[in-house]
Design a protein around this nucleic acid. Structure first.
Lengths: 276, 276
DNA sequence: TTGAATATTATGTCTATACATATTAATCTG
DNA sequence: CAGATTAATATGTATAGACATAATATTCAA
């Protein structure tokens, strides 16, 4: 018999007899529990999810309007009939979503300007294409050892000249150009890349599997297609392209810089707020 | 005397004398603690942050390479000399970052293709401008009641004709055009918007403060500037503009649709991975 | 009245324990 | 040996209690 969740009392068979709820319970006899089922006081919120939902409901219903300070964890725990840690879990999750703001001593308040915190997943291109139900294909266009252009060298924080591998490639979705990739790999950080020709193997996937990185930076922008990009991507020169630039580091050493130019029409969509 | 953190033993003065670490401790005498300081076995990891750091270190150092299954929570807790809940907290945070994947019974493994999970904060424009150290200014350009164009009506999931408020506005940063806003407000969901002229008051800020929403959708794209946008934003027609479209809902009713066209050169930058 | 010292308070975190749940591995059966 | 049943296991979550920490309120003194 699976335990009933979300409704009813569902007294846990803990070793300690007394719960925070003051009323002493009889040694669990199902019939009695059903009969007693409390004086129909409050619905029981047991999981942190259900508490999150209830808090969200109150925020959306403007019971707790933007800017308002909500009751403290201890009070909510008592109201919901659960442990403070459970309330904490729920409120912490809401704070991560940017819907409430929490400060010690000051308490928790409903965000006045809930920043639209969109979690943008930028997947490996192979999976991005697969998710569209299309067939992924990869074509390396060029590969050369070269010093990076000045602007990039500066972003690599490299003094003087450094050796890089410059790889350009095209990713296709069911035969159509999808993304043009312009990548620089720092050979001082990843010397083993020099042994790869990247003809069949995607540089990004090879790097992920073989060269560690600790952190990075992503830039999303709109840029006009260059002559070369336009030709490769079947676009007209100057067409607005969605561009993602990614720069990754292993501790203090730059690993790689990639500029991904998407074919015209590409966009990124993400959902806002908790699931309804 | 502030307690030492991160190094040393720092035995907590809990009521229960025995910790999970088998060795019985003397009633805390600082000198003894320093003298005993264990047989230099292992550094103590006390906070979930420090455990996260150590796990990250092992992943970056390829001690746990991509795809590898890492020890289970109980074992790690024993190794680190902490409670399982603490290890859980650390690993859960890493899972949210997309760096490890967790499944019950199967365990925790280092992500093979760590999706670049960039958390893009899309702030209220006033704050975005302030953050750039510039002076925010707002100018309403037009306001009219109108039925939305067909495409938008469909996205509003509206049968037949619905009344909307159509507001266009320009947001400026230190006098320079920053964002052109093209907004449709569903008057069936937010009838009180009809009483506002939005001449001085930013529609977004008014909506945030006065009309609740439960969820939404954000789209990031690159689009060519229309004639009108070009004129307003001081750009040439066809220039690539970074565009954010936002559609918000209150339960099942559409609230508002906004299209924000940023002046040329705008980009969004976010950091990847945990802080180094 | 200002400024420093102290108390208060709400969140943040850790612990130990118990139970829930999903999933795989093992075992039993036909 | 196939398929169903059962056991084992790792993560997921709830709880009570204790202490940590940050920030505000209050008190007291110069």
């Amino acid at each position: 018999m699976p335990s009933v969740r979300g409704r009813g009392v569902t007294e846990k068979a803990t070793d300690k007899g007394a719960q925070c709820c003051g009323t002493a319970k009889l040694p669990s006899l199902p019939e009695y529990e059903t009969a007693l089922e409390c004086p129909m006081t409050e619905p029981q919120f047991k999981s942190w999810q259900s508490i999150q939902d209830e808090v969200l409901r109150r925020i959306h219903a403007r019971e707790w309007p933007p800017g308002a300070v909500i009751p403290n964890e201890a009070d909510l725990a008592q109201e919901f009939g659960c442990a403070r840690a459970t309330v904490n879990r729920a409120l912490r999750a809401l704070a991560e979503l940017g819907l409430v703001e929490r400060r010690r001593k000051a308490g928790t308040r409903v965000a006045l300007h809930p920043v639209s915190r969109a979690t943008v997943d930028i997947p490996v291109i192979r999976q991005e294409v697969s998710a569209l139900g299309k067939i992924y294909e990869y074509r390396r266009l060029s590969r050369a050892r070269a010093a990076p252009p000045l602007g990039l060298a500066r972003r690599f924080c490299a003094e003087g000249l450094i050796q890089c591998l410059h790889v350009t490639a095209l990713h296709l979705a069911s035969g159509e150009p999808f993304v043009f990739e312009d990548r620089w790999i720092n050979l001082e950080t990843a010397p083993s890349a020099d042994a790869q020709d990247f003809k069949a193997l995607n540089a990004n996937e090879w790097l992920l599997a073989n060269v560690p990185y600790t952190h990075g930076e992503i830039r999303l922008a709109a840029q006009a297609a260059t002559e070369a990009e336009a030709m490769i991507l079947n676009a007209r020169p100057g067409a607005p392209l969605f561009v993602i630039e990614r720069l990754t580091w292993d501790h203090v050493r730059a690993v790689t810089f990639a500029r991904l130019s998407y074919a015209p029409g590409h966009s990124i969509v993400t959902q806002l707020g908790a699931a309804p």
